[in-house]
C-alpha cells in the first residue's frame, strides 16, 4: 500500500476511539500545543500563507526526491490539523505528494476546517504542499 494512505488509515483508526467532538478537538488542540513545527527563521513573509481567519507558515526541504515539511499557525486548532497533514505528507516521495488524495480529513470529521469558506489558510497550504511535490518531481524527471 502507498505509504501516504497507510498513514491516513492509521489516523482514521486512532480517531475512531474518540467518543464525541470534544475528545477529538482536545486531541487536535494537544497536537497543536505540543509540537514546535517550524524553525523560527521560516516564520516570515516568504513562508506565510494568509487566511482570513488564521495564518499558516510552510517550509519545504528536499532530499533524494523526498520532501519534508515544517509548518505552523497562529491558531492552535489549525496548527493541530497541520500536524496531521505534516505527519501524512512529510518525508514522502515528491510524486506521491503531488497526487495524494487526502481522504482522512473527511473521514475523521474535520472537513469543515479544510473548506475554502473557512479561509484559515489550510486549503492554500495543502495546495502549496502539492505544488512543492509537483515542482520537485518535475525537476527530478
Amino acid at each position: 500500500m502507498n505509504p501516504i494512505n497507510s498513514i491516513q488509515d492509521e489516523i482514521i483508526d486512532e480517531f475512531a476511539f474518540f467518543g464525541d467532538w470534544m475528545e477529538k478537538y482536545e486531541y487536535i488542540i494537544d497536537l497543536g500545543k505540543s509540537l514546535p513545527l517550524i524553525d523560527e527563521q521560516y516564520k516570515d513573509e516568504d513562508h506565510l500563507i494568509k487566511g482570513c481567519q488564521s495564518q499558516v507558515w510552510l517550509h519545504a526541504d528536499e532530499a533524494e526526491g523526498k520532501v519534508s515539511f515544517t509548518a505552523d499557525s497562529d491558531a492552535v486548532i489549525t496548527k493541530g490539523i497541520i500536524a496531521l497533514l505534516v505527519r501524512v505528507l512529510s518525508g514522502q516521495k515528491a510524486e506521491e505528494i503531488a497526487k495524494a488524495d487526502l481522504y482522512f480529513i473527511d473521514k475523521i470529521g474535520l472537513k469543515e476546517h479544510l473548506s475554502p469558506t473557512r479561509s484559515n489558510g489550510l486549503v492554500s497550504m495543502v495546495k502549496q504542499m502539492k505544488m512543492y511535490g509537483l515542482a520537485i518531481n518535475a525537476k527530478s524527471q
Binding site: 467532538w21 488564521s54 489549525t78
Partner: peptide, 21 residues
C-alpha cells in the same frame, strides 16, 4: 486564545459568532 479557535469550538456548541478581521 486565537479568535479562530474560539469560533470553531463555539460552532460545535451551536453558537454562531463572527471571527476574524
Amino acid at each position: 486564545v486565537h479568535p479562530y479557535d474560539l469560533g470553531a469550538i463555539l460552532d460545535k456548541l451551536g453558537i454562531a459568532v463572527r471571527t476574524g478581521h
